[in-house]
Design a protein around this nucleic acid. Sequence first.
DNA 1: GGTGAGACAT
DNA 2: ATGTCTCACC
Lengths: 260, 260
Amino acid sequence: MFEARLTASATFKKILDAIKDLLNEASFDCSESGIQLQAMDNSHVSLVSLMLRSDGFDKYRCDRNLTMGMNLANMAKIFKCANNEDTVTIKAQDDADIVTFMFEAKKQEKISDYEMKLMNLDQEHLGIPETDFSCVIRMPSGEFARICKDLAQFGESIMISCTKEGVKFSTGGDIGTANVKIAQTNNFEKEEESVTIEMQEPVSLTFACQYLNSFTKATPLASQVQLSMSDNVPLVVEYQIPDLGHLRFYLAPKIEEDEN
Amino acid sequence: MFEARLTASATFKKILDAIKDLLNEASFDCSESGIQLQAMDNSHVSLVSLMLRSDGFDKYRCDRNLTMGMNLANMAKIFKCANNEDTVTIKAQDDADIVTFMFEAKKQEKISDYEMKLMNLDQEHLGIPETDFSCVIRMPSGEFARICKDLAQFGESIMISCTKEGVKFSTGGDIGTANVKIAQTNNFEKEEESVTIEMQEPVSLTFACQYLNSFTKATPLASQVQLSMSDNVPLVVEYQIPDLGHLRFYLAPKIEEDEN
DNA sequence: GGTGAGACAT
DNA sequence: ATGTCTCACC
C-alpha cells in the first residue's frame, strides 16, 4: 500500500508543468524515503531528476518499494481538475497497475477521484555522480528564466562564464551578439533576490538554449535557482521545492569544436 | 406592432452566447405573455427552450402574435455592437420581414439601430410534458460547468448519480476513470454556493458530455443551475434568468446498452 | 487593480 | 493555427 497526501496540489501541478514538455512518460520510484524520478528527456539529451522527501508530505506511507510508470500528459490532465488549494492524495496498491489521485476541496463539499492506468516503462538506471563543482551560482529563478528567454532570440546556444565577481551569459548570431552580466549582490538583499557565487576556479561553458528554456518551466517552483558548473561535466540546474525536495536538470556542455 | 425594451443588453448577449452554438437559427414566438423560443439543436439531439416573460421587460408591447425566424449568428454579431449597459429595444411590424434592434447608451449620447432580415423557418411544434422528477438538484452553475469540462477530458459521456446525500458525476475512458462527488450543503451557506437535492428516489443516468458542455455556455446567466432527472425521461438543465425568465436544455439519457 | 496564462471560438 | 476573451493570480 502506498499513500501520499499533500495539502496544496499546486506544487504537483507546477512539477508536472515543469517536466511534461521534457518527458512524455516517467517512472516514479516510491520508497520509505520519498518519491524519486530520474529520466532522460524525450530526445535523450538532458536528464531530469526529481526528489520529493517523504517528510515533506502531510501523510506518507510506503509499505513496499514500488515503481509507477506514468504518462505525464495524462497525469497533467488529471491535475488540471484540481484547484490549487485542494488537498491531493496519491494511492496505489503494492501490486497495482493503477494509481488513484484524490482531490479534496477545503470543506470537503467536493471530493474527486481519478484512476489512471500505470505503464510498464523500461527501467533506465542512471548513475549521477556527486561532484564538487568549480562554480555554484545561486540567483533569482525568474531572472535566469528571463535571460534564457531573451538570449534565445539571438542564438541557439548560451555561454555561461562565471568568475568570482559575477556571471556572464552570452550568445550571438545573425542579428548580432548579446551579453548579460549579473554581479554578486551584497549580503543585505532579500534572500530571494540575491545572487551568490561560490567559485573554486572560473568556468566558461556553452549550452543549448532550447534545453535551458525547457528547464525554466520550473521557475514557479522556487524563487531561486542554482547553477552548478565544472569543465567537461554536465551543468546542474536545481530548483529547491520548499519543504519537499528538489527538481534538477542536467545538461552536457557543447564541445567547443561543435560550435562552428 | 411589436416592441420590447430591456435596460441591460448584457442579458441578451449572454442568451445568444448560450444558444448560438446549438442553434444556427431559431424562431422567436412573441405574444402578450412574452417571447418564447423552442427548438431542437442543429443535430436534433437536444432541445433548447427559452422563455422571457413580458413583465420582465422595461417596456413590452405585442399587438398580434408573431413569429420571427432569426439567424442567431447574425443576431449575435449585432449584439456584439452593443455595450453591456446599453438599453436595447427590439421592434417589428406585424407583417414585417425585418426586425430592428436599437441600442441606446446611457445618456443617449449614442444611439445605434440595426435591421436584420427575418427568415421563414419550418415550424416544429414541440410538446414538452411537465413531469415530476425523481431528483432535482440545484448547485452553483460554475461548479457544474467545471465538472463537465473536467470530466470531458476522460470520456464521452457522464453518468450522473443522485442520492439523498449527494450527486456523483462519473466517467471513464482510455486514461482511466474519474468521479466527482458533491455533497448537499448545510443551509447556512450563501444561496449562490449552495447544493440542494430534492429526491423522490435515487436516479443514475448517463449523458453525452458534448451536449452538457454546450449547455454550460449559459453559466453567465445564472449563479445556480437546476438539474432535473427521472428514469427514461430527458434531463432538464435549467438556468433562471433573474427577473426575466429561464433558459432550459433537454437531453435524453443514453440507453445502457449503447454504452458498450 | 493590473497582469499573465489558459481556454475558447473563429 | 491564430486571436480574443475570461479567469486566476499577484
